[in-house]
Measured scan of single mutants.
Amino acid sequence: KKYKIKVYVKDKKTKKWKKIKEIEVDTKEEALEAIKKLPPNYEVKIVP
């Protein structure tokens, strides 16, 4: 079972969220580790 991490950042001009990358991992633990490495201003969604 794979997890997709969708990473969004808020556009300063439009104030809208835009997706900047998608990370695919195998476990939820890996997903949480990957999220920890991202800057705090990123919004993250984990999709099972």
Rank of each mutant, 00 (worst) to 15 (best):
K12W: 11
D26Y: 11
E30T: 03
E24L: 13
Y8Q: 00
Y42M: 08
K28I: 13
P40N: 11
T27Y: 03
A31E: 02
I20H: 03
K12A: 11
D11H: 09
E30N: 04
Y8S: 01
K6E: 15
K36P: 03
E22D: 06
I5M: 05
K2C: 08
K45G: 03
I35N: 01
L32S: 06
I23P: 00
Y3G: 00
V44P: 03
K2R: 13
K15C: 12
Y42I: 06
T27S: 14
D11G: 04
K45M: 13
K18W: 09
E33D: 11
K1H: 14
K16I: 05
L38D: 00
D26E: 11
I46A: 01
K13H: 10
K15P: 02
P39M: 08
E30D: 08
L38I: 09
K12Q: 12
K45V: 15
K1L: 12
V25H: 03
I23R: 02
V44L: 05
K10E: 05
L38T: 02
Y8W: 06
V47D: 05
V47Y: 12
Y8E: 00
K6G: 06
E22Q: 05
K1A: 11
T14K: 07
K21A: 13
V7F: 07
L32N: 07
K36N: 08
A34M: 15
Y42R: 10
K15Y: 03
K13M: 08
V47R: 06
L38S: 01
K16L: 07
K45I: 15
V7L: 06
E43K: 15
K18P: 00
L38Q: 03
K1C: 12
K18N: 05
K12F: 10
E29W: 11
P48I: 15
K10M: 13
K10I: 14
K10H: 08
I23H: 03
D11T: 06
P39T: 06
V9Y: 11
E22P: 00
D26L: 08
V25A: 07
E22N: 03
T27I: 02
Y42F: 12
K21Q: 13
V47L: 08
E22H: 03
K10C: 10
A31F: 08
K21S: 11
E24M: 13
N41F: 14
K4C: 09
K28P: 11
K13A: 10
I20F: 06
I23N: 01
E24Y: 15
K16G: 04
P39Q: 07
Y3H: 02
I35G: 02
V44Y: 14
Y8P: 00
V25E: 01
E22R: 01
I20P: 00
I20M: 05
D26N: 12
K15T: 04
W17R: 03
E30Q: 12
K6I: 15
E33K: 08
A34F: 15
K15R: 13
K15S: 09
L32V: 08
K15L: 08
V7K: 00
I46N: 01
T14H: 05
K28L: 15
N41P: 06
W17F: 06
P48M: 14
K45N: 06
K16F: 05
D11N: 12
K12L: 12
K6D: 06
K45C: 15
E43C: 15
N41R: 14
K12T: 09
K12P: 12
Y3C: 05
P40L: 09
D11S: 10
K18H: 09
N41V: 10
E22V: 09
K12G: 08
K4D: 01
Y42C: 08
K28D: 04
W17L: 05
E43Q: 15
E43S: 15
E29Q: 12
K28Q: 12
I46M: 08
I5V: 11
K15W: 02
D26T: 08
E43M: 15
I20Y: 07
L32C: 14
E43H: 15
V7T: 01
V7D: 00
I20W: 09
W17P: 01
V7A: 03
L32Q: 12
K21G: 14
K37P: 03
K15M: 10
P48D: 13
I35F: 03
K45D: 05
P40K: 14
K6C: 06
K10P: 03
K12I: 10
I5Q: 00
P40M: 09
E30W: 02
E30S: 05
W17M: 05
L38H: 02
V44R: 02
E43F: 15
V44H: 08
K6W: 14
E43R: 15
A34N: 04
K36G: 10
I23W: 15
D26Q: 09
K4W: 07
I46R: 02
K10N: 04
P39W: 12
K18L: 10
E24I: 13
V9R: 14
K15V: 02
A34W: 15
N41D: 12
V7I: 12
K6Y: 15
T14L: 05
I35W: 04
I35Y: 03
I35R: 04
K10V: 10
E29S: 07
N41M: 12
K1V: 14
E24C: 12
E24K: 05
K4V: 14
K18T: 10
V25W: 03
K1M: 14
I20E: 02
N41E: 14
E29H: 07
Y8D: 00
E30G: 05
V47N: 05
K36M: 11
P40F: 08
K13D: 08
V44K: 03
V9K: 15
E29T: 07
N41W: 12
K18M: 09
K6M: 14
I46H: 02
K2N: 08
K1I: 14
I35S: 04
E24D: 11
Y42D: 02
E43T: 15
I46D: 01
K37N: 11
K21D: 12
K28R: 14
I23E: 03
V47T: 11
A31Q: 02
E24P: 06
Y42T: 08
L32G: 04
K19V: 11
I23M: 11
P40Y: 08
K1Q: 14
K1N: 09
K36V: 05
T27F: 04
K36E: 07
K19A: 04
P48Q: 14
T27M: 02
K2Q: 08
V25M: 05
P48H: 12
E33M: 08
I46E: 01
A34Q: 11
D11L: 06
P39N: 11
K19D: 01
K2M: 09
L38V: 05
D26M: 09
K28G: 04
K15G: 14
P40D: 07
V25K: 03
L32T: 07
P48S: 14
I20N: 01
E30Y: 03
E43D: 09
K28N: 07
T14F: 04
V25R: 02
K4G: 02
E30P: 00
K15E: 05
E22G: 01
Y3F: 14
T27V: 02
K15Q: 12
Y8L: 02
A31W: 06
K2T: 08
